[in-house]
Design a protein around this nucleic acid. Structure first.
Lengths: 190, 190
DNA sequence: CTCATTTTGAACAGATCTATCCAAAAGTCA
DNA sequence: TGACTTTTGGATAGATCTGTTCAAAATGAG
């Protein structure tokens, strides 16, 4: 009954996400977003309403995909230590086609402190990953792989902090050996 | 022989530094900088030439002060593990009057990937802290406090990554208990 | 084919941001 | 006091950025 779109909204969202990821929220202009998505301004604004809403959607998309992968991994039947090792290695062996670092980390640094709504989105995502990690450590303790005296919540926080630190180092241009050293050292903390 | 300034350049730099620290480079406007320093636009531009150069000076000032404190601590005669504990506690017990997080970390995330000059400044600062940590771990190994089989460089990288991760968590609004848990867990990695 | 509806491109409006300009104010030194 | 120099505030220039408008193009339904 009407003219159909010539683009795939999901692909456009993915492209916008990568632009924000690479350059940051403030430094990404609406023209950058047009170039990245291949759309005109009208299409961008028709589809996503504003730069701000597009960013929210892009961030939500990022968290959905990435956190799902983390939950999958942590829900697998690997030994707990192997789960954590694989998790850390996601950062050591990051896809070279992806921008450096992590959109969640970048957003926590750049946007969250002055934007309560974004901060709340990040907090919810953080809690999901924290809970999955906690469960993994608890399972590891029940299986006798992890020292039962440790607090699973503390270990979960530690893993998240370690990955966050690695992501920042990578974004700062650290070489692979340094990132690998961090991961291997962290694995000895529990 | 001419009219003297009514302000202290160092204090103005400090105020600008805190503005960039709190809000980020892009989101800090020149008007924010005037408000933070208490200077007019003319004075700001007369003294610091541009927003960009002011930022470079502010970042350099931050690194000078903070890294000096780190080097002092690591050069003290505390046992190595106590040095590291004190270092981690600088983040756990951050001054409540300071903005959340760390200007170096924020800059590594927001600015470094698209600004080689800034990235180089950060790299030099990074190397100084890394080297001081490496020496501390080496001394700890010679004193028999730290396992001699570990690679001091790896341990130094790990400590930096841990602190970086903690800084980001704090900036994201993490509560003190979580940050403390990260620090205590990290101390068990070596 | 024709009508109704949506998409699309290009121009444009309005706000904001960085930086400059210029004259008045203020201090120093003779 | 008076000449000289720098600072300072306010206005403004020029660029850039977000978001809107509008008419033409495109497409499916009847």
């Amino acid at each position: 009954m009407a003219r159909p779109r010539t683009f795939d909204e999901e692909r456009a969202l993915e492209a916008a996400m990568r632009a924000f990821w690479a350059v940051g929220y403030e430094a990404t202009t609406t023209e950058d977003l047009c170039a990245a998505t291949g759309l005109g301004r009208s299409s961008v604004y028709n589809t996503f309403r504003s730069k701000r809403e597009l960013f929210e959607k892009a961030l939500a998309h990022y968290m959905e995909v990435r956190t799902a992968a983390v939950l999958d991994l942590l829900g697998s039947d690997l030994p707990t230590r192997e789960k954590i090792r694989a998790l850390l290695w996601q950062t050591v062996d990051a896809d070279p086609d992806d921008p450096d670092g992590c959109l969640v980390v970048n957003t926590m640094v750049e946007v969250a402190p002055r934007d309560p709504k974004i901060a709340e989105c990040l907090r919810r995502d953080h809690d999901r990953r924290l809970e999955a990690l906690r469960r993994a450590f608890l399972a590891g303790q029940r299986a006798g792989e992890i020292d039962g005296d440790r607090n699973p919540d503390d270990l979960a926080c530690f893993v998240i902090a370690t990955i966050t630190g690695m992501r920042v180092l990578v974004r700062g241009g650290a070489d692979r050996a340094a990132v690998e050293a961090v991961a291997n050292t962290a694995l000895r903390a529990f």
